[in-house]
């Protein structure tokens, strides 16, 4: 059974379709890595799946409230401590406590530090630890390893492996090799939208007036 399926999906950036006719399934315990050059629509696809922007065509089949999204920004409050940041998201999502998440990303010693004293890599680790306290099954990750060092990337790979082993799934836009057997890749270049065709339902001004 797949945790998230996408049928004939089209997503829009700047009023124009970037991806068309996209189909994929991610079963439980599997991860899919998105590939494609800059501007291929990786971020747009992830934001659409997360429900932050509407899809113009096709459908996204997944159980309600099963998606956790992590974008370029970590959503941290500099004035709060590491533990406070995590427990806030845990309370909002009604997920598990923050203890396992802290130890998984090696943040236990930093728990009492205010987030503004953290380095970029430490902030990123905290942002990724947030995924664990959401308690959600499908992770959508946009360049999760930016500003992480090799050791931290390994930590993240371990966390991801544990998540997949417990029946989760993940869709990741990344260019580095995480070294996981459960990962398959999807190249978005093949689904690039063809300009010139006039769609029945224009996505925005740029399609309605061209």
């Amino acid at each position: 059974m797949s945790l998230i399926s996408v049928r004939d999906l089209a997503v829009v950036r700047g009023g124009l379709r970037v991806i068309e006719g996209l189909d994929f399934d991610i079963p439980a315990g599997q991860a899919l890595v998105l590939r494609g050059p800059n501007g291929a629509g990786k971020t747009t696809l992830l934001r659409t799946l997360a429900g932050l922007q509407p899809a113009v065509a096709g459908e996204i089949i997944c159980p309600p409230e099963s998606i956790a999204y992590a974008g370029h920004a970590d959503g941290l409050k500099p004035a709060l401590t590491v533990a406070e940041n995590l427990s806030f998201w845990s309370a909002v999502f009604g997920g598990p406590g923050s203890g396992p998440a802290l130890s998984a990303m090696n943040l236990t010693e930093l728990a009492a530090r205010p987030a503004h004293t953290l380095s970029a890599g430490q902030k990123r680790r905290l942002g990724l630890a947030r995924l664990m306290v959401t308690g959600r099954a499908v992770w959508l990750l946009d360049e999760p390893t930016v500003s992480l060092d090799t050791a931290s990337v390994a930590l993240f790979a371990d966390m991801l492996r544990a998540h997949l082993a417990s029946g989760g799934a993940a869709l990741i836009a990344t260019h580095i090799d995480l070294g996981l057997a459960e990962i398959s890749t999807l190249d978005l270049t093949a689904y690039r939208a063809q300009p010139g065709r006039k769609p029945a339902r224009p996505a925005g001004f740029n399609e309605a007036f061209a």
């Binding site: 700047g14 124009l16 970037v18 740029n206 007036f209 061209a210």
Partner: peptide, 14 residues
């Protein structure tokens, strides 16, 4: 104006 902008956007994308 919108049509002009739309044509430009399409050209940039292509």
């Amino acid at each position: 104006r919108r049509r002009l902008a739309a044509l430009l956007a399409r050209e940039h994308r292509a």
